[in-house]
Design a protein around this nucleic acid. Structure first.
Lengths: 340, 340
DNA sequence: CTCCTTTAGGAAACCGCTTACCTTAATTAT
DNA sequence: ATAATTAAGGTAAGCGGTTTCCTAAAGGAG
């Protein structure tokens, strides 16, 4: 493997000159010398040793993406856009999958510090409320080591972040159902989502604005899996005055609701309307196809990238970008039937 | 940030001793000295500079996983098991997403060589047949640089690899349909899958064994997307003597087939049986739920890990592991109705 | 023709750690 | 008692670059 030293020898110059040429440093070099060095580098099939570069230069030109799951579209689609942009900027990306384990998240943070990554885009893993504390500590550690940090999916003070307005999303979804004529609207909340409270607030706010009484018996919560949506829905349908529409905190629970309705012999959307959060192929494959509140994945990725670059280039240390959700209307919502 | 040098100074020893203690090198050290050094390291909150370690030691203790897509369960599930095992062995994992671009694959290979990864687990991207040549070149490059390589998903000579017996899978799927009583069985092949030929062979072999004439008009191919399965199915159903069962090369096309059947007013499995390759949440969410040939993801991951470790530890340089698929019976296949 | 800038390039310290090769003292073997 | 080991630790040369000073020659100004 050719080194910068080999090139220097063959070109009859010093390694300093070679390094300057190869890195386009702002230092005068005779055009002829430059070309000669480049030519020799090509002949020798030279590739810089990135590790040596990092050690000498202090920058690793590597960014880490920390996400709770790589088997979840929501994250991987965001990652794809971030990674694409980073590559264009000459950064390499580490994808770190915490598998929803804060311990693993912490271990990754250690490892990334040791690996001297330049920046981290971070979607914290929060299973229990206490995890928030660990998340915060991890962010502090990174910052202490001079690593740029951007967070999305949860809110922290003192960090550049993407804030997704799920409050508005829940509000819009609920309002949509209200406008269709629904009055008994259930909300199946997620037990451990980072943005829990805001969804619930949006739901309640929409009811208020339409002057519909908030009925706590219409609100439950599940663990974001299909079976949770299924069982919650069965419970809701047992009420003396059951809902005519259900808003679920994610798409899996919404699909569970769909299944429950079918098993109960209810027609969707005729007898029950269902709307979910988060879009994916799943939403288009179920029957009826699922109306959802979609988070703007591409924009999230682009925003995260932008905030990170701003930090790396020293332009802006701390900023927040707010993004809105939007509704994708498919088949699972409709006008409620009059009840007998 | 504390360095090994700081520790040495504080402990009144040389960096050599510190390095030995910290790495548990086989070199005698007085227990007392050892404890003192460890204690000081703790006090100083010392973390080794992984970059310097790599440069000095020649090993980066990093493995790269190269896959064509991170938004595809098939790959991400395999990655999860590999990564888990690698972490236990003290390796860090880079996840590289080629997005089905051979150019990107090649760029990653360059980058990984420069980053001195110790090994690569590689699922080649092959969109056009010519890509095979690029894949091979990339593998050669890695090997030339002394990097351990394990491949899965395609076959190459001279590389440790996991071979998944999709021939058998297609054979089993077809035989299953035959045993249910089907005689007109269609096969919707994938246009660019690495294992194309073997699936087709398995399909034909099953027909042969059951002494059913192979009818080429029952075989088409699509581009592995839902809409391809949909349109192919519509074409097949237009035949004067249409199939009573369809075997699709992946699950998305199988789901497309399901949709086509429904749009044609056909009942699945009453009027048409459908079986797909590759399992995912999607298969369980559609109605009817999809019977599939599943590839043993966990085993693939474990096998890939094993082959890689064998190479890294110098036990075995070149080996192949063969794994079988298995059928998951759900609702989309049944006994064909007698035709009038 | 001086004096000051530029232009072009080199020397070598440094990044943080590993490791081959030594040294010295303490054991053990003979 | 002497030679041969072993234990415990040190020295310093890398690993492959980057970068801060320097130097020397050439160009421009006065």
């Amino acid at each position: 493997m050719a080194t910068i030293y080999d090139i220097a020898k063959k070109a009859g110059v010093s390694t300093a000159t070679v390094s300057r040429v190869l890195n386009g440093v702002n230092h005068p070099i005779k055009e002829e010398t430059k070309q000669r060095i480049l030519q020799i580098a090509r002949e020798l099939d030279y590739r810089p040793n990135v590790i040596a570069k990092s050690l000498a230069g202090g920058k690793s030109h590597t960014i880490a993406l920390i996400i709770p799951s790589i088997t979840n579209d929501f994250y991987t689609q965001i990652c794809e856009v971030i990674e694409e942009k980073l590559e264009q900027k000459g950064y390499h990306t580490y994808l770190c999958n915490t598998r929803r384990s804060v311990e693993k998240e912490s271990r990754y943070i250690e490892s990334l510090i040791a690996r001297k990554v330049d920046g981290v885009i971070f979607s914290p893993t929060r299973v229990k409320p206490e995890d928030n504390h660990v998340n915060l500590k991890n962010i502090e550690k990174l910052k202490k080591h001079g690593i740029a940090v951007v967070a999305f999916g949860s809110q922290f003070k003192g960090v550049s972040q993407i804030y997704i307005n799920t409050y508005q999303g829940a509000f819009d979804a609920t309002s949509y159902l209200i406008n269709l004529g629904h009055k008994r609207i259930s909300f199946i909340d997620g037990l451990s989502a980072g943005t829990r409270k805001s969804r619930r607030r949006g739901y309640i706010k929409a009811l208020e604005e339409a002057q519909i009484n908030f009925d706590p018996s219409l609100v439950t919560a599940g663990n974001l899996r299909m079976e949770d949506g299924y069982s919650c829905t069965l419970e809701l349908l047992k009420l003396k005055n059951p809902p005519t529409a259900i808003l679920a905190a994610n798409n899996l629970m919404a699909i569970g609701a769909l299944k429950a309705a079918r098993d109960k012999g209810l027609h969707v959307p005729g007898d029950l309307s269902v709307i979910g959060f988060d879009d994916s192929l799943l939403s288009m494959v179920v029957d009826p196809t699922l109306t959802v509140i979609k988070q703007p994945l591409k924009e999230i990725g682009e925003a995260a990238f932008k905030l990170l670059i701003n930090q790396l280039e020293g332009k802006q240390k701390l900023e927040t970008i707010q993004l809105n959700t939007y509704i994708i209307k498919r088949e699972s919502c409709g006008i409620p039937k009059k009840r007998g």
